[in-house]
C-alpha cells in the first residue's frame, strides 16, 4: 500500500491507478454528503462523479501541506452542490414522495429494520425542516463527524458563527423530532 503523499504525487503526474486508490478511500463520505444535501440519489451520483473528475483535473494545484485531502474534496462537493441548487432553483428532491421509499441501506422485512427505517425517515424529515445553512452544518457535524475547524475550512465560515448556527439547529431539531416522534406513536 502506497503512502498518502506518494499516492497524491503519482495521481498528480497522471497515474490513474493511484487516483483510483485515493478515490476509493474517499468516495463514500463524499457521496453521503451529497446524498443528504440533495436528498436525491441520481443527483448525488452525478455530483459525486463530477467531484472526482474535477479533483483529478485540479490535483496539480492541491497542496497537501494546507487543507486535508478530504476537506478539499468536501469543498469541491459543496461548491458543485450550490451551483447545482442555484441552477435548479430548488433544493427539494424531484419526487419527494419516492425519496422516503428509496432511502438506501435499509434491510427489508425484519422488525428491527422496519424500526431503523422509521427512525431514518423521521431523522431525514427533521433534517429537511432546517434552513440550508443549518442542514449543511448538521450533515457535516453529525453525519460526517467533522470538527468545527474542518467545517470552517470547508464552508469558509467562522468557527464561532458555526457554533452559534449549530446551537440554533439543535434547538430546532429537538422541537421537530419531539413533534415527529409523538406523531409516529
Amino acid at each position: 500500500m502506497e503512502s498518502f503523499e506518494r499516492l497524491v504525487s503519482l495521481a498528480r503526474s497522471g497515474n490513474k491507478e493511484a487516483f483510483g486508490q485515493l478515490y476509493t478511500g474517499y468516495f463514500t463520505p463524499i457521496y453521503r454528503f451529497l446524498y443528504w444535501r440533495s436528498r436525491h440519489k441520481e443527483t448525488a451520483e452525478d455530483l459525486t462523479q463530477t467531484v472526482f473528475l474535477k479533483a483529478y483535473q485540479s490535483l496539480p494545484s492541491f497542496e497537501s501541506t494546507g487543507t486535508p485531502f478530504l476537506s478539499w474534496l468536501y469543498t469541491i462537493a459543496r461548491n458543485l452542490y450550490l451551483d447545482h441548487a442555484k441552477k435548479k432553483r430548488s433544493v427539494l428532491p424531484d419526487e419527494p414522495e419516492t425519496f422516503w421509499e428509496n432511502l438506501p441501506g435499509v434491510l427489508p422485512s425484519t422488525e428491527e429494520a422496519s424500526l431503523g427505517r422509521e427512525n431514518k425517515e423521521i431523522l431525514a424529515r427533521a433534517l429537511s425542516g432546517l434552513s440550508d445553512d443549518q442542514r449543511e452544518l448538521v450533515i457535516l457535524r453529525f453525519i460526517e463527524d467533522r470538527s468545527y475547524e474542518e467545517i470552517a475550512k470547508i464552508t469558509g465560515k467562522n468557527e464561532e458563527a458555526l457554533r452559534a448556527l449549530n446551537y440554533r439547529a439543535m434547538k430546532l431539531l429537538r422541537e421537530k423530532l419531539k413533534h415527529l416522534f409523538t406523531d409516529n406513536g
Binding site: 490513474k16 487516483f19 483510483g20 478515490y23 476509493t24 468516495f27 463514500t28 457521496y31 453521503r32 446524498y35 443528504w36 448525488a44 451520483e45 459525486t48 462523479q49 472526482f52 473528475l53 483529478y56 483535473q57 432511502l103 438506501p104 441501506g105 431503523g116 427512525n119 431514518k120 431523522l123 431525514a124 433534517l127 453525519i143
Partner: peptide, 20 residues
C-alpha cells in the same frame, strides 16, 4: 442511522472509467 448511506458499487468503476 443516516451514516449507513452507501453508493452503488458500480458507480465507483464508472467514475474511474470517466477519468481522462
Amino acid at each position: 442511522p443516516l451514516r449507513r448511506v452507501t453508493p452503488r458499487t458500480s458507480l465507483l468503476s464508472e467514475t474511474l472509467l470517466a477519468v481522462p
